[in-house]
């Protein structure tokens, strides 16, 4: 505890000096998220392992026949990526909620929407991007033609950013509930459907050699819409959860 040495007079910060520097706060939040996840590798790896495991169940459950697998591969890879993302969402705000960090974020002079979107961005970097990188590996196992791997990765990387943003809303709404996990999937999965349609559509188009760009453009449009609407929805939901 501090020794009672010469205590300076307490100063009141006036309007002009109170200008908070947003970039400092955002960069620090991103660094904080990444270093937290570096120490909780399981949190990052589990969705990836789930993805690989779940995909490998399908040939066992349906048939190892290559033609059939090729036909269903785009859908499978996308649906399972959806589930893997969903699995990681519950932890997005949970520990910060429990230890009181969210409360501090809310009380800081920075906008809560910007801080929480930074957390979502970290989530995407550590869940969506690894899923996209890993998908071609599973594509091989599902006899997906080689020429569609690029589109698979791009569509997953682009689409999973929307998934993280939309899922962030659900995570923020359920973070105050003791068992929000199942409810979270009920809230979020219907909202994921457009991303699923255009994402798997892109891969399917790539497999049969159709134009891929319209699908990817739609994924981009969805991401733009999510970037506009999700931040305020996440911030509003977090406020509700914290003060519940």
């Amino acid at each position: 505890m501090p020794s009672s040495d010469t205590t300076p007079q307490v100063a009141i910060v006036s309007e002009s000096k109170a200008k908070p520097r947003l970039t400092v706060a955002l960069r620090a939040t991103l660094v904080r998220e990444l270093s937290r996840m570096r120490r909780r590798r399981g949190e990052v790896l589990n969705p990836l392992v789930f993805y690989a495991l779940a995909i490998s169940l399908f040939p066992l459950g349906i048939s190892p026949e290559a033609d059939l697998l090729t036909a269903i591969a785009p859908g499978l890879l996308w649906v399972m990526a959806l589930f893997a993302t969903l699995l990681s969402l519950d932890g997005l705000f949970r520990s910060d909620f429990d230890d009181g960090s969210l409360e501090q974020m809310m009380l800081s002079p920075q906008p809560l929407a910007a801080l929480s979107v930074t957390k979502v961005a970290a989530h995407w970097l550590l869940t969506g991007v690894p899923l996209a990188v890993m998908a071609p590996l599973l594509g091989v196992m599902l006899a997906l033609p080689l020429h569609s791997y690029g589109v698979l990765m791009v569509s997953l990387a682009l689409g999973s950013a929307s998934l993280s943003l939309i899922g962030g809303i659900g995570a923020a709404l359920t973070v105050g509930l003791p068992r929000g996990g199942v409810l979270l999937s009920l809230l979020v999965l219907p909202l994921y459907i457009p991303v699923l349609i255009f994402g798997s559509g892109a891969v399917q188009a790539a497999v049969v050699g159709d134009a891929v760009l319209p699908h990817l453009a739609m994924l981009g449009a969805l991401l733009a819409a999510a970037l506009i609407f999700a931040p305020w929805a996440i911030a509003a939901s977090l406020r509700i959860s914290i003060n519940g």
């Binding site: 109170a18 937290r36 909780r40 230890d99 009181g100 960090s101």
Partner: peptide, 15 residues
Amino acid sequence: ANMLYLGHAPGVSAW
């Protein structure tokens, strides 16, 4: 900018 709040939970991340 002039207020400091410490809640029930310490507000520090365990990790």
